[in-house]
Write a protein that binds this DNA or RNA. Structure first.
Length: 766
DNA sequence: CACTCCCGCCAATCC
DNA sequence: GGATTGGCGGGAGTG
């Protein structure tokens, strides 16, 4: 009171200091990310408001958003319980699923389409049309999405009909999770959220209010680093948007059990169906729903896998577990594991907290990400990637590196001209190297600093990708083969701590483990199931996209800070085979990829081939393990390597498992960028060579596949890019979205859809 | 000026 | 009927 006006103003915290985001951080600082499950942490709103010196109203906003993610749940008046991030993975997965089922992808496209069509239509009818178009798409207005075990405590005391902020928050997250790339503009989000409630009057005020609320939500989500504000620049100017920066959510392969509140479920189609049943029905349409069909190529794959598994289990020549070193045992175990890899989602293992230095920067996700005990793995190598954006492909697989793989390190090579890179991640005793569709095994820095990713997108390729990804079609590619009830149930028991996951992995898979069969009895059901053994391949092919590196505030969990290469946003669409592709170490040994070729060897392997390779090559695993007898593959490789001048004539690549000790360049400077100079002609030659190599991998011992499946790489279309060749599949180019040429670190993305392929939107962050 | 989003009114609901 | 929740939109701060 005694202060003058100016002084008084200065004594007051600035507007920014009072922001919801900051307040949210303060709020978060009070509670652990992963609270003990033994001891409940209760939140008293009054206390918090007082301690943080804010009105209670503000706390409600925060708590409501957290509630939407099940980070808290309401116990009683003024009283919440803190769950932290324990439920997050499950929640996100559920939200993604509901989002998919609510056809948000289509809605986004519809909005964009209309927007585009009415860009110069000033009569304002565009919005109404959009609104009306929702009716034709989908009518499933959903209620608050809840998780089992949490729903009742929340619902019992809070029957307020409209939990708008909570529901809005969930819907917003859904939008982000289902869109490709995972960027949603404020405007689109607002329109969709309004569109659902009020089809008719999309008046300006309502829109403004929605935007306000979205900001509220976004501020909270940003503070927990699930999203990040970016800007989309298009013809008409800059638009605020939000990009998903949270953990990657694996594709849904089954219906997670979830409940909805007893709140009325609004349906635009039938006002009478307000029951919970109807609500659930909306959320989880019947399984026979036609948009869950298996992609034809997957049927083959599954059959092949199954038959192979049978062979392994019954063949007299199957390796018998011996009591010797344990190595054989492991190999045979891997063998059977590998035979199933293509069919079974890889369980996402948490990283060990202990990592070697060189991995720390490159591989470590945030604590938050590391700890996500995905209840279900991403069947990256096989399925449904279409409806799922080809995302931070690196991040997830790498964060899944099991603890025993500490010696591994990843080197990454984004290929500006050729799409995604792949890191070959090998078993602990082996190394990690990079693999890219331009077939360069190269090391690469993850060096892009901050937000200045400026490499240009190739609009043509982006367009190609966009137009090749008929997202609706993609939705229809969910393979039922992987939608295995039994597995699901098992996985639902897997909401475990990282520590236990890591520990289990060690016990289950670490080669140095004494006795597999014995330890198996100790492990929980999901791991004890033989099928789950298959979740630990000896290696992965990890599609890499681009790298970003952000310097972030210390102490905040951030995947990007950790230097993980994450796909920021991309117009790429992965093929069903994209993602972490399990690959057998012994397969690599079998072709004797020599260490010194790590930066120069150009190999062309279709991801589908690779995914299938373990299946098809089981019969020669033994020999590769023995590694004394050169096999046809190695001869062929040697020949081809010599042929292309990668090794001098007469030099034989040693047949020993040299890969085990491949020196990985630890510094980006050591990278060989020779691929950049590759001419088209060279590419062609390589294509041919690589086809040979592919076949040598695919048909090692009398090839069971008979020209079917991934080995069909007969005539790589000349004009096509390597990337396209790479993803050439028997299903035809239209059944599998092509991986587009990635921009290799740009923030310019094409948000083009099949509707508006021409649009190139620039995303900037500030 | 447009974009952000804080602030607090006040209605709905709870107890 | 007071307390709790939270929708909502005015308008201030920011770039």
């Amino acid at each position: 009171e005694h202060l003058s006006g100016d002084e008084y103003e200065k004594s007051q915290p600035s507007r920014k200091e009072k922001s919801l985001g900051l307040l949210c951080l303060k709020f978060l600082a009070r509670y652990p990310d992963y609270p003990s499950t033994v001891e409940n942490i209760y939140i008293c709103l009054d206390e918090v408001a007082e301690e943080l010196n804010v009105e209670r109203r503000r706390i409600y906003s925060i708590v409501n958003v957290f509630e939407s993610l099940h980070m808290v749940s309401r116990l009683a008046k003024n009283r919440y319980i803190w769950h932290g991030r324990h439920n997050l993975a499950k929640t996100l997965q559920t939200l993604k699923k509901v989002g998919e089922e609510n056809k948000y992808t289509e809605k986004i496209q519809m909005i964009k389409k209309r927007e585009y069509e009415h860009e110069f239509d000033l009569d304002g009818k565009g919005n109404e049309e959009v609104a009306r178009s929702f009716v034709s798409i989908e009518h499933s207005e959903m209620c608050f999405v809840e998780l089992p075990g949490i729903e009742f405590c929340a619902a019992s005391v809070n029957s307020r009909k409209d939990k708008s902020l909570r529901v809005m928050s969930q819907k917003f997250v859904m939008l982000l999770l289902v869109s490709t790339p995972q960027i949603v503009s404020l405007e689109v989000a607002a329109k969709i959220l309004i569109g659902e409630d009020q089809l008719e009057d999309l008046d300006k005020n309502k829109f403004k209010t929605k935007i306000r609320r979205l900001y509220d939500i976004a501020n909270v989500l940003s503070s927990i680093e699930l999203i990040k504000k970016v800007h989309i620049t298009e013809e008409r100017g800059r638009k605020p948007a939000f990009k998903w920066t949270g953990p990657e959510v694996p594709p849904n392969t089954h219906a997670t059990k979830l409940e909805t509140t007893s709140a009325p479920c609004i349906s635009h189609i039938s006002e009478s169906t307000t029951s919970k049943e109807q609500c659930s029905k909306n959320l989880f349409p019947s399984r026979v729903k036609q948009n869950f069909t298996r992609h034809p190529s997957l049927i083959k794959l599954v059959k092949s896998i199954e038959s192979d598994r049978r062979k392994i289990q019954s063949a007299p020549t199957s390796p018998v577990k011996t009591s010797t070193t344990g190595t054989d045992e492991n190999v045979s175990a891997y063998k059977s594991e590998v035979s199933q890899l293509a069919a079974i989602p890889q369980y996402q293992l948490a990283e060990s907290p202990k990592r070697p230095k060189d991995m720390k920067n490159n591989l470590s996700g945030s604590l938050w990400e590391d700890s996500l005990p995905w209840p279900e793995a991403a069947p990256k190598a096989s399925t449904h990637t279409a409806a799922t954006p080809p995302k931070p492909l690196v991040t997830q697989p790498l964060s899944a590196l099991p603890p025993s793989h500490q010696s591994a390190s990843a080197v990454i090579q984004p290929q500006p001209h050729s799409g995604a890179s792949y890191a070959i991640y090998l078993h602990p005793s082996h190394a990690v190297t990079a693999y890219s569709p331009s077939f360069m095994l190269q090391a690469l820095p993850c060096a892009n600093e901050g937000d200045n990713c400026t490499a240009a997108t190739d609009p043509g390729k982006a367009m190609a990708a966009a137009s090749n990804c008929a997202c609706q079609n993609c939705h229809e590619m969910v393979p039922e083969g992987y939608d295995n009830e039994e597995k699901q149930n098992k996985f639902e028991t897997l909401d475990q701590s990282v520590a236990s996951c890591s520990e289990q992995y060690k016990r289950e898979c670490a080669p140095e483990d004494e006795d597999r069969t014995k330890t198996k009895q100790d492990i929980p059901v999901a791991f004890a199931n033989p099928a789950h053994e298959a979740f630990f391949p000896s290696g992965y092919l990890i599609p890499l996209t681009q790298c970003t590196h952000h310097s972030n505030k210390a102490g905040l969990p951030n995947r990007e800070k950790a230097g993980l290469c994450s796909l920021q946003h991309t117009a790429t669409h992965s093929s069903p085979a994209a993602g972490a592709i399990p690959v057998m170490t012994s397969e690599l040994k079998a072709v004797n990829i020599p260490a010194f070729h790590i930066t120069s060897l150009n190999i062309m392997l279709s991801p589908t081939s690779i995914a299938a390779a373990p299946v098809l090559s089981n019969s020669h695993l033994n020999s590769s393990n023995a590694s004394s007898v050169p096999n046809p593959s190695s001869s062929l490789l040697n020949f081809t390597l010599q042929h292309v001048g990668l090794i001098p004539a007469g030099v034989q690549v040693p047949a020993s498992p040299v890969l085990q000790h491949i020196p990985i360049p630890s510094k980006p400077e050591s990278i060989n960028h020779s691929s950049e100079n590759m001419t088209l002609q060279e590419e062609k030659v390589r294509n041919n060579i690589l086809q040979l190599l592919t076949r040598s991998l695919m048909e090692p011992a009398g090839g069971t596949d008979k020209g079917q499946g991934p080995t069909v790489l007969k005539e790589p279309p000349e004009a096509q890019t390597m990337t396209e060749n790479f993803f050439h599949t028997p299903g035809g180019p239209n059944t599998v979205p092509l991986l587009s040429a990635n921009s290799g670190g740009t923030d310019t993305v094409s948000q083009g859809t099949s509707y508006i392929p021409q649009r190139k939107l620039e995303v900037s962050e500030n």
